[in-house]
Design a binder for these strands. Structure first.
Lengths: 226, 226
DNA sequence: ATTCTCTGTTAAAGAAAGTTAAATAATTCC
DNA sequence: GGAATTATTTAACTTTCTTTAACAGAGAAT
């Protein structure tokens, strides 16, 4: 990851400058917005990897900014700063999609620790594994294979198998490679098991005439779109 | 805080004994593991407040141990010991969630200083274990899982289980790792017990359509947000 | 053509996980 | 300390997933 850019919305100029300097010293790039409206404008105009919002701000409070940001972006982590540890505030913040919450006064190290913790957490989140197979759509994460609205839930083995085939549409995948990737071992019995799964996948995929899993005798399988 | 227990993984018996004796003399309780595998086993079986890992060890190196530990625990501080000051090693260690890094040779006092510094940092921030799970909010400290105002008090086992799952949203958590982390032992009966708890957690989490605990057959579970 | 291996398919067996209720263990509260 | 409450485990039964078995057909080799 290169340089993480943080948008900091804090109306107190002393604290704002202090925090932004500190964040820059820690290797982040940091932009300071002095009220909620400016913060939201700033967010829409530039790409930020992280947002820190003071809850109490003039013109537009932190919650309102968060709500607007979440209206257009569900991903970017948001951390709230608040003067008092009000429970309702806390809950409200999280309902709006906040990732964490820090009560003033807090130490600089604490802030960094939180920011890093959130970044670690959100970065490790699996990316979208979406595989379009002609008119089908296979979502590896949710394990759903959908075709014109109707959804088929796939099992673990079905998913693993289809994922590899879908990653190689039109290309032959070696039988033993498939076995090793999905079963970990390419012995005879796993091979027979895989054949059963190929049959199952073919059944799921037979709604679309143009989609087919073909066998290359003695070699492997190929998912193809005609 | 009572007695801080340190897990030390060091394959050199001389250095290992020396360090563990020294740490004990400084008021810590210290367990010495002579290789990476034993270290990880030890970690899963007992509660440790701090982990010191030699990078180069037989069977399982320090990085591998750290990776496995972070698979089930994101909190416990990890300090690496390494022979040479390789920059890549350093980076790799930090990516795996290390808290600090010490290059051999180092003085005993230096080690103590680092350990104390990390403990101070991690302890003083009175860790707020708040885990947002889409529209749910799980507070590990108060053991409350809340959803739009209504709160569900969780039991110990429910909490431990949910914590690990929540720390790994979108990522598969190995069944045996979960068992070792929560029950201390991954035998069959604990497994059945865990299945019962998974059912309970699913019931708590079924108010939000987008939140789901999915099973990866023969592997483990995954808490996911669709 | 015959034989052999590889794949296709279906059904049944086996294993893992889901669920509910009852039994046991641990806490809390008088 | 003992009853009541709560937490956890065990048990029993169900469902789902995966493997194995059995048989049939296709393709390659002899």
């Amino acid at each position: 990851m290169s340089n993480t850019s943080i948008l900091l919305a804090e109306d107190d100029p002393n604290l704002g400058m202090l925090l932004s300097k500190f964040l820059r010293a820690k290797g982040f790039s940091c932009t300071l917005a002095v009220d909620g409206e400016i913060a939201y404008q700033e967010f829409t105009n530039n790409a930020y990897d992280f947002v820190i919002l003071d809850v109490m701000m003039p013109k537009k409070d932190g919650f309102a900014v968060a709500k607007d940001i979440r209206g257009i972006d569900k991903e970017t982590p948001i951390l709230f700063l608040t003067a008092k540890s009000m429970k309702e505030d806390k809950l409200k913040g999280f309902e709006l999609g906040a990732d964490d919450y820090l009560t003033k006064p807090f130490s600089m190290d604490e802030l960094i620790a939180r920011v890093n913790a959130i970044l670690k957490r959100t970065n490790t989140k699996e990316e979208n594994h979406l595989y379009p197979i002609h008119h089908y759509l296979f979502d590896y994460n949710t394990r759903i294979l959908s075709f014109q609205g109707n959804e088929q839930k796939l099992t673990t083995k079905e998913c693993e198998l289809l994922k590899i085939l879908a990653q190689n549409i039109g290309k032959e995948v070696d039988r033993n490679d498939l076995l090793k990737a999905v079963w970990g071992d390419d012995n005879y019995f796993n091979g027979r098991s895989m054949d059963v799964y190929i049959t199952k996948l073919r059944k799921y995929l037979n709604q679309d005439e143009k989609v087919e899993i073909v066998n290359i005798h003695g070699k492997g399988f190929k998912l193809m779109v005609k």
